[in-house]
Amino acid sequence: MKALTANRLTDGEVVFWKQGQWLDRFADAELFDDEAVAEAAEAHAKTQVTLLVEPYLIDVAEVEGGVAPVSYRERLRALGPTNKPEHGKQAQGGAQIEILAHAHGAASSKGRIDLIKRK
């Protein structure tokens, strides 16, 4: 399963794709079972240059209670910094945030590594 994410150009906020819209919460993200559909959405996102920076697909998996990004880094992006629970998306709290916060398992996120190299 995949989801499409990016940072919003104007404020850097982490956003997720849902049927043509960009929303703040991972809980709202559209989940792609079909790679081709996911890639088409990504290709479209890459043309939205005045809206986004660096859109990329992330792996998503089922976890206890719901779904969560596979990589630890992506879960942090969907939550906020662990040293300041009052900042970032996690501040809203709620069941969806709890699911993310308690998800286990991990993998590196390739999207970001790309970012590093081009720096």
Binding site: L9, T10, E13, V49, G80, R118, K119
Partner: peptide, 28 residues
């Protein structure tokens, strides 16, 4: 120019970096 789409992110990135502005995980 960046917000108006006159320059691309690839062109803008080194410019903003030279002004100390990074894109990090949650924000700039």
């Amino acid at each position: 120019r960046r917000l108006a789409g006159e320059i691309t992110e690839d062109q803008f990135k080194p410019i903003r970096l030279m002004n100390g502005l990074y894109l990090q995980l949650h924000a700039y």
